[in-house]
Amino acid sequence: MTRPGRDEDPDRLYTVTGGRSRSTTGAETFDLVTLVVSESAPVRGMQSEHAAILRICRFPTAVVELAADLGLPVSVVRILLGDLLAQGKITARHPRRAQTADALPDPDILKQVLVGLRNI
């Protein structure tokens, strides 16, 4: 796994987060599947991770996916997202909130739709 000194970036995670190890907004704001949407374009002089998040999140993107894209641990991504949320540059959509039990279609209906589609 280790090929010391090669092909790694020199900046360490604590410099990426500015020394914070827990997000100020808390883990409940961003869980793994929270969808993040950027509300503004990246501006010059922004931390590169923030800019990257804003670019990726032009389309709603899950936190875990962001972490994979950035190559950063989820905890670190949460901290960065907390910064952006505090600045109002992103919004977080919680999938669970959208799926309250009554708002969802009935499984039977879905099954019927599926069968119907197959029969086409």
């Binding site: 796994m1 790694e8 970036d9 670019r55 994979a68 894209d69 950035l70 190559g71």
Partner: peptide, 23 residues
Amino acid sequence: PPAAGPAPSSPRAPLGAAPGTPP
């Protein structure tokens, strides 16, 4: 479009499984 910034950050992932690990 989506990730010009990750140029520095994409090779950051040290794990073999991470996408964008160059070597």
